[in-house]
Amino acid sequence: MKLESKQQNLKDLNTFKLNSFTDYFFVVRNFEDLKFITSTLGDYKDIFILGGGSNVILPECIESLVIKVNFSGIRMISDFGNDVLIEAYAGEFWHNFVIHCLNMGWYGLENLAFIPGTVGAAPVQNIGAYGIEFSNYCYSIIAWDLLKGEIVEILARECFFAYRNSIFKQKTYKNFIILSVRVILSKIWNPNLEYFKINDYSTRKSLEDSKNINNLIEAIFDIRRSKLPNIKEFGNVGSFFKNPIISEESFLNALHFFPDLVFWEQRKDAYKLSAGWLIDNCGWRGKNYGSVAVYEKNALILLNQGLAKFDDVIGLAALIINDVYNKSGIKLEIEPLVYY
Rank of each mutant, 00 (worst) to 15 (best):
L302R: 02
Y137A: 10
K227Q: 08
Y130C: 11
S180H: 00
A317F: 07
A143F: 05
I99C: 04
E60M: 00
H95E: 04
V66Q: 08
V152P: 01
K187L: 09
E133G: 04
Y271H: 03
Y325R: 07
F168V: 12
F257M: 04
V27W: 00
K35H: 11
N96S: 14
W189Q: 00
Y163H: 12
S135V: 00
H256G: 10
K272G: 02
H100K: 09
R157A: 03
G128T: 13
L41P: 03
A254Y: 07
I231G: 05
E333I: 11
G91S: 06
T38A: 12
W144C: 00
V313A: 11
Y44W: 09
S64N: 13
N126R: 06
G283R: 05
G315A: 02
V183K: 03
D312A: 09
R75I: 09
T38M: 08
I223T: 04
L13H: 06
C282D: 05
L316D: 10
G91I: 11
I320V: 13
F48I: 08
S226A: 08
L58P: 00
L102V: 14
W94T: 03
L155K: 12
K309A: 12
I86H: 10
A254P: 03
I62N: 01
V66S: 11
V124P: 01
G290M: 11
D46I: 05
F196I: 12
